[in-house]
Design a protein around this nucleic acid. Structure first.
Lengths: 110, 110
DNA sequence: AAACTATGACGTATGTTTACGACATACTTT
DNA sequence: AAAGTATGTCGTAAACATACGTCATAGTTT
């Protein structure tokens, strides 16, 4: 990170950007929706639901995990992934605060 | 776009990802907050508020504009940027729907 | 123990984003 | 008209993201 200037912004802005980045690929959005839909942990057959190879799906899962949005516990041969409800709630609150802070009536003519 | 598979996901997932991508850099988050704070159109002195060159800020402004979140009208020598309240409202609603659809109580032990 | 299965880690090719200097454009002022 | 000012566009280098095949690991089954 010697080139990017992303770290020179304030903590909240960086946190919002970090969260948004996780959601910035449809595969990760799809994975979250799939985990929510199945209402339970699910092992790597997620790949079969998506137009991606198992390897690529695994990579996206790692990113979601690194961001804290999902948890993954080893359960014998399979791994049990599910949404981290607490962290997800925090993410939701963060974005809600951001959007609420932005909404306003522009007083110009454009 | 011959390499990415992003287009193979459903429209809503792509739309969420597209919106998230716009917010995935702290500079763009900061620009939106700055525009909201000043409660009016503002010309390119935004660059002086950020740790970035004028050129780079201009580039971020173009991305926000391309995404429809802000509008920019030429007003003589300066350009008047402001948040597109209607589009911004739609973006907010889209994310709210997504987050509401995800929140659930995981029934496993992880 | 040997074969099988599910998964993550590694390597790598290609595409995209970020950042900025230099140049172009267009309006304003003198 | 010439100089000045505010912006956008272009070119480009470095960093990062995406996608997937192959290999390594670790538990299961026979």
């Amino acid at each position: 990170m010697t080139f990017t200037k992303a770290t020179e912004f304030d903590a909240t802005q960086q946190e919002i950007a970090r969260l948004a980045k996780v959601l910035s690929h449809p595969a990760r959005v799809a994975i979250l929706q799939h985990l929510a839909k199945t209402q339970s942990c699910i092992s790597g057959d997620i790949a079969q639901e998506l137009p991606l190879s198992r390897t690529t799906v695994s990579q996206h899962l790692q990113e979601l995990k690194a961001a804290g949005l999902i948890k993954g516990e080893i359960d014998g041969l399979t791994v049990c992934y599910c949404i981290d409800t607490e962290q997800f709630g925090k993410a939701k609150a963060l974005l809600e605060t951001f959007f609420s802070g932005i909404s306003f009536a522009c007083n110009c003519d454009c």
